[in-house]
Design a protein around this nucleic acid. Structure first.
Lengths: 138, 138
DNA sequence: CTGTATCCCGATAGATACTG
DNA sequence: CAGTATCTATCGGGATACAG
């Protein structure tokens, strides 16, 4: 981070170059990186998808419906989503304990975006597969 | 993976539950996970953004414009993108070597989607920040 | 039921040096 | 210039056991 790489005849400082280069992203790429750090992990979008399908859901129900997730990862994922305001957690003072999770409107708005991404993946899947075959065949 | 977790009175097998639960995603979540595996890493979207701004670009130009990336990671990222048909690599038989990278139409179409994600991040940033402050303040 | 607490391993990626 | 080769550190995440 401290040492940047300059080994050519460029006059402009790195930061200037970077700013110009990343002009496509609203804020130079920081925003999109943060977002991908949130949803790019192994479980987040799956949990969102499950909640979008039928909320509210209890911890155990989520645990069943997200195939392969561990209790640990489910807890961590839900905490992160709750912290970012994408999911609500409602604990009922009962015995045995009951806790329900649901998407907030903010979470719902993310689901829409991620669904668009999934749609892209579906539409372009064949194209990507064939590109990959071509590449690997070389 | 082999042992699934069933510890309630559910009658339906896990797979059935999972299939129902993930109905939001076109293919039960596999597609979206694959896509996030591709673009969810640290550098891919940044490289795409830089290429979208001003392609074609040489290896060295990319190296400068993606702040903080190493040669190794730039190479790996470009190879993956090339393999998936998102980027073209054009090598010119010259001395010294010259190689130019550019987005394919497929890559461009992904950029559009990812830009929408970035837009979401920008629009909802304040909301997320405040949700996070509230959560951390508890 | 709804989580925590540990331990541990493999994958990701940073640093550095070297090459056609 | 455009990479490759190695080595290493970090970290997400799995397995397991335990607790309120």
């Amino acid at each position: 981070m401290s040492a940047t790489h300059i080994d050519d005849t460029s006059q402009a400082p790195d930061d200037q170059l970077a700013a110009d280069a990343c002009a496509i992203w609203p804020d130079g790429g920081r925003n999109i990186r943060q977002t991908l750090d949130r949803i790019g992990d192994k479980w987040t979008v799956l949990v969102i998808g499950v909640l979008a399908a039928s909320a509210p859901l209890r911890f155990g129900a989520l645990y069943q419906r997200v195939p392969g997730i561990s209790q640990r990862m489910l807890t961590l994922t839900l905490r992160r989503l709750e912290r970012d305001g994408l999911v609500t957690r409602t604990a009922y003072a009962e015995v045995p304990p009951r806790v329900e999770y649901a998407l907030t409107p903010l979470g719902e708005s993310l689901r829409v975006i991620v669904t668009a991404l999934a749609q892209w993946a579906t539409d372009r899947n064949d194209e990507i597969e064939s590109a990959r075959r071509d590449f690997d065949a070389r």
